[in-house]
Computed example of a mutant assay.
Amino acid sequence: MIGYVTLGVSDMERAKAFYAELLSDQGARMLLDMGRIAFIGKRMSEPMIAVCVPFNEEPNHPGNGNMVALPAGSKEGVDAMYKKAIELGATCDGEPGQRIPDQFYGAYVKDPDGNKLAFFVFG
């Protein structure tokens, strides 16, 4: 259903390093780097994250209410992704915790460019 999600960034090298390392434990890697845009994922045929310098060459602006949610597989996975993101330079936007009893466990960060990410597990 989703091919890829693109996040505007101000520093391509920093963004590529952040996302490639953040998602490496899930088997993701840099799949395609075209200079202005780069795709990180497991395979080109599966959902990916793309980071790019905006096409109009204006500064990137994270959207208010926009968020990319990344499945973590387990509560421990949520905790690990949150910790790793913080270590890589993200800022906390909601520590790991049970959000809906017995249904949703999640954590929230903003990447170095201010894009909001969620790490989650249902159940």
Rank of each mutant, 00 (worst) to 15 (best):
D11F: 01
N56R: 03
N60C: 13
G77Q: 10
L117A: 08
D33T: 07
V68M: 12
G41I: 09
L117Y: 08
M30H: 06
C92L: 02
D79P: 00
L88C: 10
M44K: 09
P96R: 09
V9L: 07
A90S: 07
G89M: 07
K16M: 11
V9M: 07
K75W: 01
G3Q: 12
K83P: 00
F120P: 00
Y4N: 13
V78A: 10
L31K: 07
Y82W: 11
D102W: 10
Y82N: 04
R36C: 00
G123M: 02
R14N: 10
I86D: 02
A85G: 05
V78E: 03
M48P: 00
L31H: 07
C92E: 15
G27C: 09
E21D: 15
D25M: 13
E13R: 12
A69N: 12
M12R: 00
I86W: 06
V9R: 04
D93N: 15
V78F: 05
E87D: 15
E13P: 01
P71D: 12
A50S: 14
F55R: 04
K16S: 04
M1V: 13
A80G: 02
S10M: 04
P62T: 08
S45Y: 05
A90D: 05
G41K: 01
Y19A: 08
M12H: 00
L7Q: 11
L32Q: 13
P71E: 15
D33V: 07
P112G: 09
Y82A: 02
G8M: 02
K16C: 05
V121H: 07
I86N: 03
A118R: 07
A17G: 05
G94R: 08
M81R: 02
G73E: 08
A38C: 10
P112I: 06
V121I: 15
P96Y: 06
K75F: 01
Y4W: 14
S10E: 14
G65V: 06
A107M: 07
G123E: 11
D33N: 13
Y19I: 06
E46V: 11
S10P: 00
V68Q: 01
A50C: 10
E95Y: 11
M1T: 14
G3A: 13
F39R: 01
G65R: 03
